[in-house]
């Protein structure tokens, strides 16, 4: 009996000691890293900030209860795809690269997110898009393609006399149709949909275009199998054609760095110089 009492006392002291140690550690390391309830981000961005928005929808894949996308609370960047084919349409017809072009079959299951719904200027004319103003009456059609200063759209092209694309060789109306503002236009005057900018960009950037066709350049998600259903990113979903000379891909905010190892206060050990 006495022995067990001694044991109990000893155990009590030991427990108290441990508690003190734990408390001391707690006060040094600050409060325990509790999980703060993170807000669900619904306004997400895919690649190009301001141009490739996507809205989170719950239960897009009911089987697993997935939303269509999960996004970073820090940068609002999409970091996980529940449904890789959210809001997509078929990419449409693509010409064969050459007679032996085997990748043509890939396009049967290729889908893209349409770019045309993004053709809005401060939410004016959600269905007429650019032609709401550029109809030949409100804004007359331009007579030629000689570079001049623009009265509007400085937010897109800061200085139209110094377009940051093509190093002076091209200007707005080399790519934008003068009379059909909801369309692009190639050097032969053929109208090209904003959903298929690759047909226009590939005219000059042939090497990149060939790589893109083969799946080496650019992003695509979905199935890894050849001929499987994939969502392709088109040129303007990553590159801003108006400022591409400054940055091929506009810099973005990075995600948070990893947690430092326990007991380390900073990462100065990495910086040797």
């Amino acid at each position: 009996m006495k022995r067990s009492m001694q044991f109990l006392v000893a155990a009590g002291v030991a427990v108290a000691g441990i508690a003190v140690v734990i408390l001391a550690q707690g006060s040094v390391a600050g409060p325990a890293p509790a999980k703060e309830q993170q807000q669900v981000v619904t306004d997400c961005v895919e690649s190009r900030v301001g141009y490739t928005d996507i809205t989170r929808k719950e239960q897009a894949v009911p089987e697993y209860g997935y939303p269509n996308v999960k996004c970073s609370p820090r940068t609002h960047k999409v970091w996980w795809w529940g449904d890789p084919f959210a809001d997509t349409i078929p990419m449409g017809d693509m010409p064969a690269l050459d007679p032996n072009d085997k990748s043509k079959g890939d396009f049967a299951h290729a889908v893209v997110r349409p770019r045309e719904p993004h053709l809005q200027y401060f939410n004016m004319f959600p269905d007429k898009h650019c032609e709401g103003c550029h109809d030949g009456e409100n804004v007359p059609f331009p007579k030629n393609n000689i570079p001049r200063e623009l009265g509007m759209h400085q937010d897109i092209v800061e200085n139209a006399l110094d377009l940051q694309h093509g190093r002076g060789a091209i200007w707005c109306l080399d790519c934008h149709s003068a009379k059909h503002r909801n369309k692009l236009v190639d050097h032969r005057g053929r109208l090209i949909s904003f959903n298929q900018p690759q047909k226009l960009c590939g005219k000059c950037h042939g090497q990149i275009y060939a790589d893109w066709r083969r799946g080496i350049h650019g992003k695509r998600i979905g199935s890894w199998k050849t001929g499987g259903k994939k969502r392709w990113w088109v040129c303007t979903e990553c590159h801003n054609p108006h400022t591409v000379q400054i940055h091929r891909f506009d810099p973005i905010k990075p995600e948070a760095p990893p947690e430092l190892p326990r007991g380390m206060n900073n990462a100065d050990h990495e910086l040797k110089y």
Partner: peptide, 16 residues
Amino acid sequence: GRMPACLEACPVGARK
């Protein structure tokens, strides 16, 4: 048959 998650997330398409 689905791509890995890291590839699908990469905003610049650097992963194949």
